[in-house]
């Protein structure tokens, strides 16, 4: 009986840990499996508060407490089959969305380097 209880406790602890992990960065880390090195770096930039900070305005799978100013970043490859078009949006969104867009011109205003933009696009294409 004692053994049975300990099995339950162990299972419970494991379940709790698993549940806890889905709220922490651990789950996000697991999702990194299969990402290229470049896409991983792009994700860090997209989730970080300095640099890309995409989560401030866009919902991204695996990102907590995302803003809702811009559209959710899903199915990016289907929405932007032309990679250059997506890269262009990050460089200067005013070209595609007009001068009224609230999205900052990450390339034109040197918030991100060309290399960083390419890495973020690598990551966005995995969404």
């Amino acid at each position: 009986m004692k053994k049975f209880t300990s099995v339950i406790t162990t299972a419970g602890t494991a379940a709790l840990l698993a549940a806890g992990m889905s709220f922490s960065g651990a789950a996000a880390a697991q999702q990194n499996d299969g990402l290229s090195e470049s896409a991983k770096e792009g994700k860090e930039l997209a989730f970080g508060r300095s640099g890309g900070n995409c989560l401030a305005c866009h919902q991204i799978v695996g990102g907590n407490l995302a803003g809702n100013i811009g559209p959710a970043l899903i199915a990016m490859k289907a929405r932007y089959p032309d990679r250059e078009e997506l890269t262009g949006v990050l460089r200067d969104p005013r070209d595609k969305f007009g001068a009224q867009t609230i999205m900052p011109p990450f390339g034109a205003h040197k918030i991100l380097t060309e290399d960083e933009i390419e890495k973020i696009v690598d990551y966005l294409y995995t969404l």
Binding site: L55, A56, C57, L65, A66, G67, N68, I69, R94, Q100, I102, P104, P105, H109, K110, I111
Partner: peptide, 24 residues
């Protein structure tokens, strides 16, 4: 500025929406 934002961008056109967990 760097973000190319006006007061109106955040606090008028997008006022009430969320930036991360915070309402504008």
């Amino acid at each position: 500025g760097r973000l190319d934002n006006s007061c109106a961008d955040c606090h008028q056109y997008h006022g009430g929406k969320y930036a991360r967990a915070e309402h504008l």
